[in-house]
Amino acid sequence: MIFENKKPAYTTDLGAMYIADSLEMLESIPDDSLNLVMTSPPFALQRKKEYGNHDQEEYIDWFMSFATLVFKKLKDDGSFVVDFGGAYMKGVPVRSVYNFRVMIRMIDEIGFHLAEDFYWFNPSKLPSPIEWVNKRKLRVKDSVNTIWWFSKTEWPKSDIKNVLVPYSDRMKKLIEDPDKFYSPKMRPSGHDISSSFGRDNGGAIPPNLLQIPNSESNGGYLSGCKKIGIKGHPARFPSKLPEFFIKMLTEPGDLVVDIFGGSNTTGSVAEQLGRKWLSFELSSEYVAASLFRFTDKNSDEETLQKIYNDVLNGKTVRLNKTSN
């Protein structure tokens, strides 16, 4: 996809990342052309973070301007998946409901449908917020993000066969010999499940609680950042998160967009899965560092520093596809 008067910071075989305002970039995209928008916007926090965020009271109006454009740009069977972190009200141990207000307004005012609500449980998340958990010990740690799967119509493209999870050991035994481990009978609800057991469907249907640790410690991105002495993006989500939704909601050749690109996890996963992608991010430093998701983690410091500087100096870097 070509944007007039805007050149990419870097390109790969299947996608491109831009240092740009997503509102401007979305305006330039043809209506009804996107298969999936997968993103994690800056959260509505009371304490300012280095990656930028808005006060909770301003946040919803700010985000709605992006959501309105996304709705126009999605295909009829397209999806908009948004990861929202939780937050507390200022100065008190009471939860904000901003993420739920966003969800309701997107349905009532824009016309989105809530295809399904997901909850990302991050078992490796540190105890937070410090004041209420560590110091006063009034609340347990906040380890779950809400992820809303919005659709433009009631029938978005989706195939859960692409995200089946391994069977438990007990289920494997049941499939091998159903009569030994299970006696078919009617449930108290009247639902007959006798025909659904003992069949190997290639895996189990996953729940809408996604347990994914955010504890990346290797790979090209952090390795590259360390080699040239810069910090990684402070609010990255793990690759398994966009991977789940890209697999379930798109097919090879579809177009995936991240409107708050950050370290470009979404783009790198889309590339690995054979999807076309676009990513937009305002911070030139974050964009330049995100290059390392597409480079060999064994690349030397000189090579990494050069392409990092090229992006900061306004040059377009051409990268080859990598499985890193």
Rank of each mutant, 00 (worst) to 15 (best):
300 D>V: 04
52 G>T: 08
89 M>D: 14
102 V>Y: 06
213 P>K: 01
35 N>S: 09
114 L>E: 10
172 K>P: 12
1 M>Y: 07
94 V>A: 14
303 T>S: 13
15 G>A: 04
201 N>S: 09
139 R>A: 14
131 E>S: 08
278 L>E: 10
185 K>Y: 00
218 N>Y: 09
139 R>M: 14
131 E>P: 01
246 I>F: 00
275 R>S: 03
39 T>P: 06
308 Y>V: 05
268 S>P: 01
322 T>P: 05
106 M>Y: 01
289 A>S: 15
78 G>F: 02
15 G>I: 04
153 T>F: 09
38 M>K: 05
196 S>W: 11
115 A>P: 00
94 V>G: 09
246 I>N: 00
295 T>W: 04
45 L>S: 13
80 F>D: 04
297 K>W: 14
215 S>P: 00
310 D>T: 07
125 K>Q: 09
78 G>C: 03
85 G>E: 06
257 V>H: 07
13 D>A: 13
184 P>Q: 03
176 E>M: 04
240 K>L: 15
315 K>Q: 12
271 E>S: 13
272 Q>G: 09
210 L>T: 02
244 F>I: 10
47 R>A: 13
199 R>A: 11
240 K>F: 11
51 Y>E: 13
306 K>G: 11
116 E>K: 14
55 D>A: 13
299 S>A: 11
157 K>S: 08
211 Q>P: 00
150 F>A: 00
307 I>W: 02
220 G>W: 04
51 Y>P: 04
161 K>I: 02
258 D>Y: 10
86 G>Q: 12
125 K>S: 08
252 P>F: 01
30 P>E: 11
276 K>R: 15
9 A>I: 09
13 D>P: 01
123 P>F: 01
184 P>A: 02
60 I>L: 14
151 S>A: 11
255 L>K: 02
10 Y>L: 08
275 R>V: 06
232 G>W: 05
256 V>N: 07
243 E>P: 06
280 F>S: 05
104 I>K: 15
286 Y>M: 05
270 A>D: 03
142 D>H: 14
131 E>C: 05
311 V>L: 03
168 S>C: 12
138 L>E: 15
285 E>H: 13
29 I>T: 00
81 V>G: 01
213 P>N: 04
6 K>G: 00
149 W>V: 13
246 I>G: 00
141 K>E: 02
202 G>A: 07
213 P>G: 03
151 S>M: 05
6 K>S: 07
272 Q>F: 06
